[in-house]
Structure formats: C-alpha cells, structure tokens
C-alpha cells in the first residue's frame, strides 16, 4: 500500500463506450477485486476509483465522464501522468469460486470485471440505459444484457433480468455493483432465494483510509470496512439504500447519484 500519491504514466487508454474510458498504468501493487485507488490530479482534486483491470504489472480504471474531475481525466493522453495511492478497502470475498452471478448496472460493472475473471462458471448480467452505454462487450462474450430502451437485450433493468435467472438457475453467490436502488432490489431477491450476496457501495470519500468519517454508512466506513459488504452486514446498515452523506457531512436521503 502506498500512503502518498505516486505519479504513474498512463500507458494506454481504451474507449469502453461514448462516456467511459479505461486508463491503464504500470503498477507492481497487488490488488484484490473490489479494491480501489485514490486518483489525484495535482491542483484539481482526488477521487476514488475501483480497479477494473488487473494484469501483470499493469492495472486499469474505468472512468465515467460526469463532472469536472472525470472530464479532466478524460482529457488525459497516453504518456500523461496521474497520482495514485492505495490500494484501499476490503474487496470481494471470492472463496465461493464458481457457479456465481454478477449483476452490474451502469459504471458499477467496472467493480465486477475482475471478479468475473477470477471465478469459474460466472453468469454475467449487465444493465445499461441504451446499447451504446453497455461496457466490456468484447471482454465478456457470454454476457447477458438488458437496456432501459430495449436497444440491446431484454428491455428492462438488470434486476428484471436477474429475477428471470433466479427462477431457472441456482447460484452459489451473487456479486453486485450499480445504482444503490438497483442493489437494494438485488439484495431483496437474494434474500428471497436464500443466495449469498456481496454489494460494493459508493460514497463520497476524503481520506480513503478510515479516519475522516466522511463515507460513513450506519457506523461502517465504506472506504475501510467496505466498499464491499455482505448481507449480514447490510442488515445492520439502515442507511443502505436510504441515506448518503454530502460533502458537507450532512446525512440526506439517497436520491439518484451519491454525488
């Protein structure tokens, strides 16, 4: 783990969709699926990103362009440098290593990619708003997709598609990441079908290492205790699916994006 940002050179950039780019950089750090790094652009800001590619000596983060910081990242070119520190957090528990399902929504899919690559017989479900926003289509050839507008796969949400699978297939475990309201429904379904489940949460973060208290979710620190939580933990986390903490520290009802 590195405590202070280390400047790394971007060695490759892939366009995943019109709004999402993956930035690759050389790193000898060891990452577990589900862990994240804090990415620093000097003089601008620093934000957490999950690792979406873990390769020999090289890692990647997939970034959805949605604000000032991510726009600045998207403007970076191969050869430019960014600062990273980490890895932080507790990733997914992959002891159940086969016959599992991952349910990803939107950019949340980025957290699940490395899970898919580590496990055997994985059913991959991805939901997006529309065809062009689907991610990693070449990477996961057998992926089951759905879109809000029906332009690809089932017309509906990842939850609908997941529910269809649960009726006909038994999973040993489910891993999910996406909009929190989607994950709430995935969790409900997993409980109904008595399947183990882990979710990866997103909260606004500052320190990234468990001291500032910014990313609290019912007494759990998303940066250090999480970002991945299991069903037993979520049962004790009343704020899951309900409350988030703003930059100011105010706890407010969850309303769309956590930002």
């Amino acid at each position: 783990m590195i405590e202070q940002p280390m400047m790394v050179k971007i060695c490759d950039i892939w366009g995943e969709s019109p709004g999402v780019k993956t930035f690759f950089f050389e790193s000898q750090l060891r990452f577990d699926p589900g862990q994240f790094v804090m990415v620093w652009i000097p003089l601008l800001d620093e934000k957490p990103f999950t690792i979406s590619y873990i390769q020999d000596g090289c890692i990647g983060i997939s970034v959805l362009k949605r604000g000032v910081f991510t726009t600045a990242l998207h403007n970076k070119k191969t050869g430019d440098t960014i600062g990273i520190r980490g890895p932080y957090g507790r990733g997914f528990d992959l002891k159940t290593n086969s016959d599992v399902c991952v349910v990803g929504g939107g950019i949340g899919m980025a957290s699940l990619t490395t899970v898919v690559e580590r496990l055997k017989r994985v059913t991959v479900i991805q939901g997006a708003r529309t065809l062009t926003e689907l991610l990693y289509q070449k990477r996961f050839k057998d992926m089951h997709v759905c879109t809000d507008d029906g332009s690809a796969g089932l017309k509906g949400t990842a939850v609908d598609l997941f529910a269809n699978f649960l009726v006909k297939q038994q999973f040993r475990k489910v891993y999910t990441c996406g909009p929190e309201r989607m994950m709430v429904r995935v969790v409900e379904l997993c409980k109904k079908y008595a399947v183990e489940c882990e979710v990866s949460l997103e909260r606004y973060m500052k320190c990234g290492f468990g001291v500032c208290g910014q990313c609290d979710c019912s007494g759990k620190l998303v940066c250090k205790d999480g970002p991945v939580f299991d069903l037993q933990e979520l049962d004790m986390m009343g704020d899951f699916g309900k409350m988030i903490i703003r930059k100011t520290g105010e706890r407010v009802p969850l309303n769309g994006s956590v930002h």
């Binding site: 202070q4 601008l44 620093e46 500052k206 001291v211 500032c212 100011t248």
Partner: peptide, 14 residues
C-alpha cells in the same frame, strides 16, 4: 452555516 471544506486531498499520511 454548512461548509464543504477544502478539496481533496485533504488528509495525507507521512
């Protein structure tokens, strides 16, 4: 009044 505070990085170990 509410305050957003400084931008990140705000806390760093040495």
């Amino acid at each position: 009044e509410p305050r957003e505070g400084h931008k990140n990085p705000t806390v760093i170990a040495f």
